[in-house]
């Protein structure tokens, strides 16, 4: 699914990604951990095609993240660390997602309903005016409705209360077993039951990569 070969990304003379090698197989559920500044977000952004590598290469289903970004991103759902203060209204955001990614607006609304978020009632509200929890649920609903082969979450539950967090993980456990998932997280105990791989990064390197029983 995803292949990272000898990837190096430098910011201001430090290797934020320092010769990273990683192969993610179909169906892998990964907890990506490590101290702040380890390079987790940078790795994910390189996979999503936001950064050009200084050397090495990345392939997502055989596609190049920057040269073939549309093909790469068709297969990925991404949820950022904190919900961005998007100024579009919910209905505009839904239009954007459904047209750009070929998702039915209905299926986003259904996913949201499963987390007790009523989209219809909020259609005219700007996204940034929703509460923290509602924003996160909206992003999660979009990510799940996209039915991607790869899900990438950068600390997805930071803004959720414990109940919503449980709901979220319950939804994830229903995912197709073929879907590959990367969770960046500080709380292993939360995702422990969902993952089959635990990867630790520090100073731009992968320092530990072990498979665990599901």
């Amino acid at each position: 699914m995803i292949e990272v070969k000898d990837a190096v990304k430098r910011f201001l003379d430090t290797n934020v990604l320092d010769h990273v090698n990683l192969t993610i197989e179909k169906g892998d559920k990964i907890a990506l951990m490590g101290p702040n500044g380890a390079g987790k977000t940078t790795l994910v952004r390189a996979i999503l095609g936001f950064y050009h590598l200084d050397s090495g290469e990345i392939r997502v289903k055989g596609y190049h993240p920057t040269k073939e970004r549309v093909k790469v991103l068709k297969n990925i759902s991404f949820i950022p660390q904190t919900p961005p203060p998007i100024k579009l209204s919910i209905s505009e955001l839904l239009e954007f997602v459904s047209k750009s990614s070929d998702v039915k607006q209905e299926s986003i609304k259904e996913e949201a309903a499963r987390m007790d978020l009523d989209v219809e009632k909020n259609l005219q509200k700007p996204f940034f005016k929703l509460s923290g929890g509602m924003k996160q649920k909206m992003l999660i609903a979009i990510a799940l409705a996209k039915k991607s082969d790869i899900l990438i979450f950068d600390e997805p539950t930071a803004n959720l209360d414990p109940k919503a967090r449980e709901k979220f993980y319950a939804l994830l456990s229903e995912l197709d077993s073929d879907v590959s998932t990367i969770f960046i997280t500080h709380r292993l105990e939360e995702v422990e039951k969902l993952v089959n791989r635990e990867i630790y990064m520090d100073l731009g390197k992968i320092v530990e990569d072990r498979r665990v029983g599901v």
């Binding site: 950022p80 961005p84 954007f96 750009s100």
Partner: peptide, 15 residues
């Protein structure tokens, strides 16, 4: 700076 760009560009839209 507010990561709106990061989110919007994580959808399959050509640059």
């Amino acid at each position: 700076e507010s990561a709106i760009l990061e989110y919007m560009l994580s959808f399959p839209i050509s640059l």
